[in-house]
Design a protein around this nucleic acid. Structure first.
Lengths: 237, 237
DNA sequence: CCTAGTATTTAGGTGTACCGAAAAAATGTG
DNA sequence: CACATTTTTTCGGTACACCTAAATACTAGG
């Protein structure tokens, strides 16, 4: 059942999964190639191998979809990645813009035993430092009920529950602008024709307006209602 | 200066270093092959590459010796390995027979930043859970002043300061026999012609005699004098 | 000091994961 | 709906780290 996959294989599966985590529509060959930073021809070849391994469904010229087994592998990788990020931030004092690359390397080197011991030590967190849900060991993904900042209409208020970890520079920028998980925002003005989105930010009484760049509006997720509950929810919760 | 070495390269260098850590005499091709579990021909080829990288000195049919640069790399790997082992035991509740394999995988995946943050968190230990000295980031190896149990004469008393981590089964056996770091032993009888070495073990008042198998006598190191100081000495100490 | 035996290297070959270039299939547009 | 464009696949080729088998160099015994 677990024939030990190469770290390339793990990366492909994780990337395929990640593509559909926050949207529908399966990933195409060239999108996969772009995200992995390899040539299209490499993807064609590798996808055939993944299919032989039973990890993806794919027919020539079609999109690539994970099988149940592939999804299981992907969730294992995502769990590893996010637990490692949490560890790096909570225990080793990394800042949230530093953890992604480090976790990317480590996730291929840790054993299941390591992951479960680490999860226990961290208190079985349900979210990582960027607010991304950490799949359970059994393959359940905690539901995250939030929307991209970009999609919100004026007047909509809520708390930031997720910030994509893909771009460290963006994370540093947001930290510099004092925007983080749990920051309360209210949409003031929706993008007209190419104009900026503006949000109002509560800061213990005072408030300021903030121009949201397109990239930021895509990377930041907001939830109205309950506050973000940090990194230490109970496992089954 | 740091052109990123493959994990194979790291393993070769580490293995070459390890061979001379507790004895003199440089390692030969076939010894290297045996320890790495690869064919002699693979070693020949790889040693040539290591030479091209400036990590070893070697002329055909001669032994393999690390260069200064090679030694630096090896110490980096050993530092990583032993800090990781310490982490696994101290923070994740691994037992000392479980850590070696896990550390072997992780040591190729961690960054220098990770290692130094980890070292700081662990309190810059000078010894790992088996009593092996942890090289400093600057490449200094804390002196360990001990002898193999095998080499001790009757009457010699001391504390166990090191137990080789290479054989997990042996470690489990010793744990089962209630022998660990800091156990006080006195050599009762030295091996006559193939007969067993016997040590007396103090156990808070009571004492028992223990037959030491050959393999154990090679793996256990004893120091007379000060007690083993645990895993939290100061860096420069 | 020559030879039998062992240690080491060379030669040729494998699998994985990548590449660029060329061929083939799918897609969009007049 | 045919053709040009884009996307995907196929086709040689490369680097790495390993292998077995064959050739070569050391080394110890007679």
């Amino acid at each position: 059942m677990k024939s030990q996959l190469s770290s390339s294989t793990e990366d492909y599966v994780k990337t395929i999964y990640a593509f559909t985590e926050w949207q529908d529509a399966p990933i195409t060959s060239s999108q996969l190639a772009a995200r992995l930073g390899v040539a299209n021809s490499s993807v064609s070849e590798m996808v055939r191998k993944l299919k032989d391994l039973g990890l993806v469904d794919h027919r020539p010229y079609g999109a690539v979809r994970l099988t149940e087994e592939g999804r299981r592998v992907a969730l294992t990788m995502v769990r590893r990645h996010r637990l490692l990020e949490t560890f790096l931030v909570n225990e080793l004092g990394y800042s949230w813009d530093e953890v992604h690359v480090e976790a990317e390397l480590l996730e291929h080197a840790v054993s299941d035993l390591f992951v479960e011991r680490l999860a226990a030590k961290l208190g079985n967190p349900a979210r990582d430092p960027h607010g991304d849900p950490i799949p359970t060991a059994e393959g359940t993904v905690p539901r995250i009920d939030a929307h991209r900042l970009r999609e919100l209409d004026p007047g909509h208020a809520g708390r930031i529950t997720r910030i994509s970890d893909e771009n460290p520079e963006l994370l540093r920028y947001l930290a510099h602008e004092r925007i983080s998980l749990d920051t309360e925002v209210t949409v003031v003005r929706r993008k007209p024709f190419g104009g900026p989105l503006v949000v109002r930010i509560d800061e213990g009484g005072a408030s300021r307006d903030f121009d949201v760049a397109d990239e930021v509006a895509d990377a930041v997720w907001v939830r109205s209602g309950q506050p973000h509950q940090g990194c230490t929810l109970e496992p089954g919760a």
